[in-house]
Design a protein around this nucleic acid. Sequence first.
DNA 1: ACTAATACGACCAATACGGTCGTAATATAA
DNA 2: TTATATTACGACCGTATTGGTCGTATTAGT
Lengths: 145, 145
Amino acid sequence: MLKLSKKADYALIAVRHLAAHGAEHSHSAADIAEAYGISPQLLAKVLQRLAKHGLLTARHGSNGGYQLARHPKNISALEVISAVDGPLMITSCTTNHGTCDQSMTCTVREPLRKVNESILQVLRSVSISQMTEDSPEAELVGLPS
Amino acid sequence: MLKLSKKADYALIAVRHLAAHGAEHSHSAADIAEAYGISPQLLAKVLQRLAKHGLLTARHGSNGGYQLARHPKNISALEVISAVDGPLMITSCTTNHGTCDQSMTCTVREPLRKVNESILQVLRSVSISQMTEDSPEAELVGLPS
DNA sequence: ACTAATACGACCAATACGGTCGTAATATAA
DNA sequence: TTATATTACGACCGTATTGGTCGTATTAGT
């Protein structure tokens, strides 16, 4: 229903947290989870995926945890979301059409592909650092006036 | 996972079909369904919702069916989608925060609300008539260069 | 060694979604 | 005025997806 998963939500929250609270020291999954009342185990899995995709660096052991791998200015919301949820395509059968069932001569595929690309562009244009500063101005993102 | 439902897909296909195939006579749910290999009953329900939201006009009885209620130029993809899937909000807890569980002081809510608004704007900027002409040009929609 | 953390896969439970069925209402045509 | 074609609508079910847990291995610091 065009809604992003809770995992993606959590991922954004966590990454934003890392960006906002000193990019120096690492934060453990448990700490972050507690700060927002999220299940620690679930958040752990989410953070693992983010680390696997190179968005975070992980350190084991005491005083370990996660850190941003890059400057928050260079991490887009899209990266975070698709790291957790997989490639974002708005329909079941865009681009690599992974089973556009029926013949259906799916007439809306092409227009929707463009819409999809636009949404990607929106998400791509939002950086994590933009999300930390809950700027009062800065209305719509990535859109013409 | 930020994907639109099949019902929304079907709705777009059907509305586009009505726009493309003579806005004069009506088309029955069964006819449209057959044309694209969709379950007639399911499509019927979808069309009913579209009619309920004033996007289509319905006529009972023989030679009845559905017609566009407005010129396809004045029907946006957003209207079609949200008629079928309900109001489009990207997170579980945007605007009318219908149960942003936990205290969580959900830090990403505000930034995501803006992203949501941008996506709405993209969808709003795509008209059905735009979807009928599978224009080779006209790349990204609703986005700045 | 002990402990604090990540890593990861298997697994379960709840919800959402796609799809069907049955029945009523309504309009057209014969 | 009867038959037929169609919309209208709610209840229902099976399956797929997702949220969330558990157990265990691994790695690093003290």
